[in-house]
Amino acid sequence: MDVFDILDRLVAFPSVAGKPNGDIAGWIEAYLGEHGAKVTLLPGPEGDRSNLFATIGPADVAGYILSGHMDVVPAGEPQWSSPPFTLRREGERLHGRGTTDMKGFLAAALAAVPALTKLRLARPIHLAFSYDEEVGCRGVPHLIARLPELCAKPLGVIVGEPSGMRAVRGHKGKAAARVTIHGRSGHSSRPDLGLNAIHAMAVALSAAVGEAERLTHGPFDLAFEPPYSSLQAGVVTGGQSVNIIPDTCTLDLEARAIPGVDPTSLLAPAKARAEALAANGFLVEWTPMSAYPALSLPQDAPLAELLGELTGEAPSAAVSYGTEAGLYQAAGIEAIICGPGDIGRAHKPDEYILTGELAACQRLIEALGARCAA
């Protein structure tokens, strides 16, 4: 199978984040097994989805991980020109959900496997394919925790998120949480007998808005746009009717932090103000939704230099989106982003990747294999 056949098969699996992924993980496991790779499925605590880890070469020697996620975002938008889970070729464009984010990288890595297995690798190349990345990098921490029993500590991780095949050394960290406030309903003519959850939520929302404004004053990291950490309220829901005292209100918050700043700390002011409402009779729930740290790989790191040599251009400093790379770095493993496609095409109808981008990615992976050969 060539890279296009593989991508066709991968796109056909509607592996939406948060859903069981046995079909796609099982197909990849079988494909890799046919080519002699050592494959391990790693079921997550959910019980219905798994990470996958595979090794080509000696597992007891330090090598490199090619990291990607098998899940995709939903594809319910009516603007799709063709079925989103059927690969459609239009000239150099290959359309389908996940083609860019990030089944294109998975396909290129899998297409390179036959060439890698023919090499006498002195250093291994591992494939680490995770689940539920699109809902807050929930799967990969379980995979990272198992690495010590699966392989020698890797020299580095290449996370194949779409970067136009230019390596990237940094991204912001992220944390998201939901606050739910429960009050007491009643007729709006007697507000003295109820507890208005929306009014109470305004206190927490005000704290979040104030923190967002404070963050615009620094600290700064000019590698990013914007060059400061940020905080926003993304979703507010509550109430039934204008003449009913609302007894419940929820608020979803998201923070994005420059390297050196803990993203969860940016949510602390809103959390404190919300929880203080308990003294007024409200029941307050704070539910973390997702969190991952920033990535910051030094310019002179061996992995950055290697990717510069393999791609022919110096790695760029940072991208605006987040990846699993920060979690690998937090675990003590150098990580960098480099993959086919453009993030601007992701998460929208008629998502696509270019045939040339797939070919370039496969060449890079095979070149990495040549570096690892005896």
Rank of each mutant, 00 (worst) to 15 (best):
P148A: 00
L94E: 01
E161Y: 06
L303I: 14
D48K: 01
C361E: 05
A176M: 00
A59P: 08
A331C: 04
I6N: 01
V261E: 02
L215G: 08
L119I: 15
T323G: 00
D101Q: 05
V236G: 07
A200L: 12
E305C: 02
D8W: 08
V209Y: 15
M102F: 04
D192I: 04
K38R: 01
A278W: 01
E275I: 09
G194V: 04
E29R: 12
D342F: 05
S230T: 02
G22F: 13
E334H: 10
T237A: 00
T311G: 08
H69T: 08
K348M: 08
L127A: 09
P74A: 02
S206V: 12
C151A: 11
L307Q: 06
P288G: 05
T311I: 10
H199F: 08
L297Y: 01
Y292I: 14
S50H: 06
W27I: 14
P148G: 02
D23K: 08
M201L: 10
R178E: 02
T355S: 14
P14D: 00
A335H: 09
V135C: 12
R138Y: 13
G332K: 02
A107K: 12
K118G: 15
G326L: 06
R190D: 09
L295F: 12
D8V: 08
H187F: 12
E351G: 05
A291T: 04
G186H: 09
S130G: 09
I56E: 00
Y31R: 04
A270W: 04
L66A: 03
V157E: 11
V209I: 15
A335G: 13
G344T: 04
I198E: 00
P20I: 11
K348D: 13
I245F: 07
Q232D: 02
T355N: 13
R256G: 11
A202H: 12
A62F: 10
E149P: 07
V319W: 05
A12L: 14
S241R: 08
A294N: 05
E313W: 09
G156R: 11
S265N: 12
G260W: 01
W80G: 03
D71Y: 03
G156I: 11
I333Q: 00
L66T: 08
P14E: 03
A314I: 05
F282N: 02
G98F: 03
A208H: 07
E133V: 10
A152S: 01
M165Y: 14
S265I: 14
N21Y: 15
Y228G: 11
G238P: 05
G173W: 01
W80P: 01
L7Q: 15
D262S: 12
V73C: 00
V284C: 13
D221K: 11
V73T: 03
T250P: 14
S230I: 03
R169I: 02
V209M: 15
A128F: 15
P141S: 06
I198W: 06
N21Q: 14
D262L: 11
P315G: 07
S229G: 03
G96M: 07
V235Q: 07
G47M: 03
A373Y: 14
G308S: 06
F105T: 11
S130I: 05
G356A: 06
G18H: 00
A268S: 07
P226S: 02
Y328E: 02
E133L: 10
H142N: 09
L295D: 09
A367T: 15
A108Y: 04
G164R: 04
V72H: 11
G344M: 04
A374C: 13
A325G: 06
A274T: 00
